[in-house]
Computed example of a mutant assay.
Amino acid sequence: MPTLLISGLTAGALLAATAACGAKSLDAAAGGDAEPAAEVVLDQAPAEEKAADVINAITPDKELAAKVPADVKAEGLKVVSSIGYPPMELWAGDGKTAIGFDPALARAIARKLGVTYTLTDEEFNSQIPGVLTGRYDFVISSMTDNAERQAKITFVDYVRAGSGMLVKKGNPAGVSGPADLCGKTVSVVDNGSSLELAEKYDADCKSGGKQALNILKFPGDTEAMLQVINGRAQATITDYVVAAYKAADPKVEVEAIALEGTESPWGIGMKPDNTALIESVKGALDSLIKSGEYGKILAAWNLDKLAVESAVVNGGK
């Protein structure tokens, strides 16, 4: 029997065996007498991941897996995020395993592409430089897709989310929208979208002849929220999904208010010249959307309202 045929039968047997145990074998090089590539065992989502059953049932799409860049096939998908922004990113009980919607979707994309997955926790400002230098393949970290960031990286948009406010339970200050913030103290994360909104609302109050906002700036979301709990601020501005998650905790005693008209796409950011990876991620996300797996992962984290109908490249403005 010719050597080429033996190799082909070996590859077929290997594929059948790995399919049965939830693993995938990378395609062998086309033509010649190439040996089959090494077996890849796909990562399993941890038990504390709310969408674990959905994720662990995802199998590779053969056509998409065949087009994955060689370095990603060899080294796995290297992902960066900032953990500590529930329900998008948070630590499991062991304090070292990332769960939440962003890690869940990244893991689902990796499984759809038939590659392994690693996630590194980095501060927000280090993420884009890490992608541009090649340390990471992509960033998924509740990052708004906008024109300023598009000048550096290319996004595949995966959800559409808006901003919100947290007020003390019972809303004693009577805050129902931006106009009610005039003359009040508002806490925000410094240098983020919440600060930009607070400054806009402050300008609107002043131009309308009303009292300015007293804006308190903090390095993190938790510090900003504490100002509402201790009564120093009447409201804090953050992403609505985070506000709703915190308001659902009866121990926190806060209420969430959506800020209408603030919705924008959040994107998975990649190096612009890495077109093969961009197409792979876009294809994997579209596949997850069409199969319903994307919707199930959103639902597991009670984030159905953030769903997009298709993967769009650079849809932000």
Score class of each variant (00 low, 15 high):
K305D: 09
D121T: 08
A300K: 07
G292Q: 12
D180M: 04
G114Q: 06
E279L: 08
T154N: 10
A256Q: 11
C21W: 10
P250F: 00
I55E: 01
T275I: 08
A45M: 06
G208H: 10
S194P: 12
S25I: 15
S126H: 05
K78V: 09
I6Q: 15
V159D: 06
E255T: 07
A243P: 00
V80L: 06
L14W: 08
D61G: 07
A299P: 03
A311M: 14
K200P: 03
P103Y: 03
P103R: 04
F155E: 00
E196D: 11
V254F: 02
W266V: 04
S81Q: 05
T116A: 13
D221W: 03
A52S: 15
L213E: 01
V41I: 11
G177K: 04
D221C: 02
G174S: 14
A151I: 10
T116V: 14
D157Q: 12
S126I: 02
A258T: 08
T118W: 01
L64N: 07
G209K: 03
Y245I: 00
I83G: 00
S82I: 04
K282L: 11
L77D: 01
T185M: 08
V40C: 10
W266S: 09
K282M: 09
G231R: 10
N302P: 05
V139I: 05
A110H: 01
L166D: 01
E196I: 07
K217Q: 15
K78N: 13
V241L: 07
V281Q: 06
Y245K: 14
D53H: 06
G84K: 02
V72R: 03
G130C: 04
I83D: 00
K206F: 02
G114T: 08
E35L: 15
A37H: 12
S25K: 13
T18D: 14
G295H: 10
T3P: 01
A65H: 06
L277I: 10
K271W: 09
D180I: 08
L15H: 15
A243T: 04
T3Q: 14
V54P: 00
A17R: 15
E255M: 08
L42R: 05
L197A: 08
D71R: 12
Q127W: 00
D304F: 09
G12F: 11
E89I: 03
K200T: 14
D121L: 11
N214C: 04
D137C: 13
A30Q: 06
E63K: 14
A13R: 15
A45F: 01
I268R: 10
V242Q: 03
Y136I: 06
G220P: 07
K282Q: 15
S126P: 07
Y294V: 08
E199Y: 07
D137P: 13
G76E: 00
W91V: 00
S141F: 04
A70I: 14
V241C: 03
D94T: 02
A161E: 13
V139P: 02
D137E: 12
A20C: 03
T10D: 13
A23Y: 07
L42G: 02
L42H: 04
